[in-house]
Design a protein around this nucleic acid. Sequence first.
DNA 1: CTGAAAGCGCTTACAG
DNA 2: CTGAAAGCGCTTACAG
Lengths: 335, 335
Amino acid sequence: MKSKITLKELAKLLNVSVSTVSKALHDSPEISPKTAERVKELATLHNYRPNPVAVNLKKSKTETIGVVIPNISNSFFARVLSGMEAEAQKHGQQVITYISNESIEREKQICDMLTSGFVDGVLIAVSEETQKKQEYDHLFALLDYDIPVVIYDRINLGLPADKVGVDDEKSFYDATRYFKAKGLEKIGLASAIHHVGIGKLRIKGYEKALNNEYSALMATSTKPSELKRKIKELIAGKKVEALLCTDFESAIMATRVAYEEKIKIPEDLKLIGYISKDIAEFLTPSLSYIEQHPQELGSTAVEVLNNRLDGKYESGKFEEKIISTTLMHLESTRF
Amino acid sequence: MKSKITLKELAKLLNVSVSTVSKALHDSPEISPKTAERVKELATLHNYRPNPVAVNLKKSKTETIGVVIPNISNSFFARVLSGMEAEAQKHGQQVITYISNESIEREKQICDMLTSGFVDGVLIAVSEETQKKQEYDHLFALLDYDIPVVIYDRINLGLPADKVGVDDEKSFYDATRYFKAKGLEKIGLASAIHHVGIGKLRIKGYEKALNNEYSALMATSTKPSELKRKIKELIAGKKVEALLCTDFESAIMATRVAYEEKIKIPEDLKLIGYISKDIAEFLTPSLSYIEQHPQELGSTAVEVLNNRLDGKYESGKFEEKIISTTLMHLESTRF
DNA sequence: CTGAAAGCGCTTACAG
DNA sequence: CTGAAAGCGCTTACAG
């Protein structure tokens, strides 16, 4: 147990003033080389580190950013966090993590915490419950507060803030067009998140690409049993040739139903899912997926926040950055 | 943009001293009810919040704990973090997250950061690379420093600190005995993490349970292609009746090989994996798994840290808590 | 080149 | 009951 040494103690040991020690350690030109060296030597010896709390108080900064995550078990958000942490480290910033568990109650508490001055800025993805209830008061309160906020991933909520998101609509537009180009006509969609923003966008992209040339064939439900029934109807009943899944649940459910119904993937059914790489590659058969580049999303969100903090953006105007997705072909879309 | 109001400004508005305001807000009995009310009213009006940085400096505490995570994309660690965050919130503590990405270099940097006084205590799971290289100097430096450290999950490294872990050995001991009790004789094991601590413990549990009555049948490799070949040898060649997988990679690989070799699960082969619930349940067939209760692991780690901070443990002696695992039966072990 | 002083925003022992 | 003062550990404009 080494106790921390302070500037004052260092000064006493050296028989100089606190100011001299501080300046010496900051390479101030005011200090003679000789003194500077003596100070630095002793500081190194005692492994002196300035107390960050004191420095922060003095500078009225915390060098800390708050990240609000709806669901950390979702590997997408875990990766986003990883990207944020890496970028923050580059700027010498700490990341404080808050997990809302998709609960509006928890989210309100967190927003309240965040306005007490722990952090220089906030990155937030709004919880599902908040989106469903469309109660944004606590978010407006946060936006109204003194620190910048960047909304990430779930961005189409009409909130006035900087935003960094994923091109949800275009990803499914492109995927649907891909199947059309291959000559498929019965292209279906399955979703367990049709009621939230990103789900709606993906569905919109799908419908746009169908362009009324083919009818939309959709299985949507938040209840597993119902979703299963509807997917079965789609792939066994209506015999769709391809299925786009907007989320992990529907993708896995589709794989499962196909297995149970002895529908072969990719021979009888092509499948694309919005799932993460490490799961997609390991499934049997491996599942073609839409890569969202979550780490890039995370690092970009931190960049935008820091640009805002550094005054690089015009105040009153908001940035919006969209990360492009990539369709990754594995076994489930082999023609 | 609401700027933060300070105690001083509040005092000026009220024509009283800063001390009076501070005491009034802390319900000090020294203050007259009348003054207290006036102060509180104005404080509420202006939504006054004490500057946490100043409070921390005064109290020489940060109310912040640092969490070092080897790999956040691993849903086990994501859940552990979730348990930690929830428990920390209960104690009014913030969680700063550091991700080592299983890299010793990154881990060293993080340990260095942590000794600069940002946090009151640390929770750490040691990176794989560190375990392989067995270079623990930076960890000893951290342990030697002024703040308490709790090592979680990867605990059998002989480091002198409080520990919270999972009963890795017993989990596989029990699982193996389960198969023995069912009359199986050819029980195999697959592992991609045989070289790290938790992998070794799981293998040890398996071997103990076999008790030299049956020979150990193991497929171990960190290389996917080699692991695949060895698993194939085990389930297609030696025709093991059951396979225990120590990790996600080997479990998924086993499912895959069985599929390719047309070996039916659970009819021809029983399978148990060390994978997380939400994946296990969705696989086809669903995969029996060992539930490690990661959230409980996380919350327990925070509890131990706080007990240590509160001086509830004898100094010089270390706590070690083991969270019991639970074998969850799904389709892949149906007899 | 060095040091005393003020101040970041708070808390609290002490004086009145 | 109220307020002045000291102090948490720093930084920095200013005086000498």
